[in-house]
Simulated assay, not measured.
Amino acid sequence: MSVMMSKNKGAVRVSARDTPQPVNTLMLVLFLLLGSGLIMMTSASMEIANSLAGDPFYFFKRQVFFIGLSLLLMLVTLHIDMDIWYRSSPLLLCLAVVLLAMVLVPGVGTVVNGSARWIDLGFYRLQPSEMAKISMVMYMAAFLQRHRDEVHERWSGFMKPMIILGAVIALLHFEPDHGAMVIIMLTTFTMLFLAGARLHRFVLIVMICFAGVVALAIMKPYVINRLTSFLNPWAAEYVYGEGYQLTQALIAFGRGEWLGVGLGNSIQKLYFLPEAHTDFVLSIIAEEMGLLGVLFVLALFITLIWTALRLGRESEARGRYFSAYVAFGIGMLFATQVFINFGVNTGLLPTKGLTLPFLSYGGNSLLISCFMVAVLMRIQYELQVKTDPEPSGGAA
């Protein structure tokens, strides 16, 4: 506010110069991802929606509803102090574990394509594995807040979280949901490493995980088939079998070239590419928007992940360790899920059904993804208004 006075005219002229506020990076990236995702998901789903429901905008309407619900959830989350999440982290993890167990109960869990990952509530299919990801991050962050020295100095501080992780992994294995298993494991290991766990202690865990993968491949031959088809999806024995989705995704990338064939002009979404509006929406983006469209989406995710890690570093420097580890964990959740989805769509990784946050159709992923961004925004807010370090006790 500036005041200017003219002696000749005896008048006072007041002019207000509002200081421009910096753009909130998290909010900008969120709305760009939501907008891009809604457009591309709708384009990818119109044919199948018309075939299944007689309405080409069936999935669009449902996604708009979930976006509205997600924004409402964000509004509530923004008003919840991080200390509350710290104290309630054991309860959140217990709830997630109970729900993971419930999907294995016949008559409670809903089986789709051989996997029991959902609980049918009538109006909505709840996927507990999505809740388990953020619940595990919250619990691990609270544990690391209380036991930083033990994690750094003793084996006990490293092995205690492994017991909790093992229980969650076992439940996910029996669903099965191997994608969520990998994401939760990598995120937990990263949080432990950032908390100061000795690098050599990871060697034993890596060996156990490798032995588990070998045992899984022996017990379930389709795992070996997926790995083999991934290495050469164009082979005659795979191109119409295990390698079909990957070959169709690669065709979509090839058709898109640099600038794409234009919004709505994809051919691969016309029943050639299964799950075009969920797990393989990135391939439709590549076909219709080209490589530049894919790079734009990738840049948005990199910005989101970098912002989460930056908030974690700033919180750690302020002694706000719970907020720091939560931010690191959320950043890693987004990073692993985006990396796996991009890798599957481009043929860098074996085919695995895993949604792309904010862009794929689905209420569970969208709700949890928006919730995680809201938690990051709350951490950002508390860094601006709070100077005291977080408590070191209060959660089991």
Rank of each mutant, 00 (worst) to 15 (best):
R117W: 15
F296P: 13
H277R: 03
S135P: 11
N113T: 04
H277M: 03
A327P: 13
A170F: 14
G157A: 01
A167Q: 08
G343L: 11
R318M: 12
L273Y: 00
V297M: 13
Y244S: 08
R125L: 03
W258D: 14
A249N: 00
I340W: 01
A317M: 14
V373W: 03
V182L: 10
M131Y: 06
F253H: 13
S360G: 07
I134M: 13
F202M: 02
S6R: 10
F301Q: 15
S135V: 08
M136H: 08
Y361N: 11
Y321N: 11
L291D: 09
L263W: 15
L144P: 11
S135C: 14
L26D: 10
F143C: 07
V375H: 15
F342K: 13
I80V: 15
S266P: 03
W258M: 11
E390Y: 00
A101F: 09
L348Y: 14
T42R: 09
I205N: 00
S43Y: 03
E175I: 01
R318C: 15
P90W: 00
F174W: 15
I39W: 06
F158N: 04
F174V: 03
A96M: 03
G254Q: 09
S51M: 07
N341D: 12
Y244V: 06
F339Q: 06
S283Y: 01
A327Q: 11
A141R: 10
P389G: 03
L28Q: 12
V338F: 12
V108S: 01
A96C: 12
D18E: 02
K7F: 11
L32W: 07
T188L: 03
Y86A: 05
S365Q: 07
L100W: 00
Q337W: 05
G363C: 07
M27K: 13
L71I: 14
W234K: 10
A276W: 00
M40K: 04
P233I: 02
G319P: 08
E316A: 04
H147M: 05
L231Q: 09
Y238L: 11
T228G: 07
M162K: 02
S129P: 10
L348H: 09
A324C: 09
I163T: 04
G122D: 06
V344Q: 05
P357L: 04
A317S: 12
M140C: 11
G37W: 13
P106V: 00
K61Q: 10
V12N: 10
L26S: 15
Y381W: 10
L298P: 06
I285H: 00
L216I: 08
L295R: 02
L376N: 09
G256Q: 02
L199E: 05
G35D: 05
L259E: 09
Y321M: 14
N225D: 15
P389N: 03
T187N: 07
H178Q: 15
S315V: 06
M41E: 12
V14A: 15
M377Y: 04
F210Y: 05
C209W: 11
L144W: 08
V98G: 05
V344E: 08
G157C: 03
I208E: 01
V281S: 01
Y381G: 01
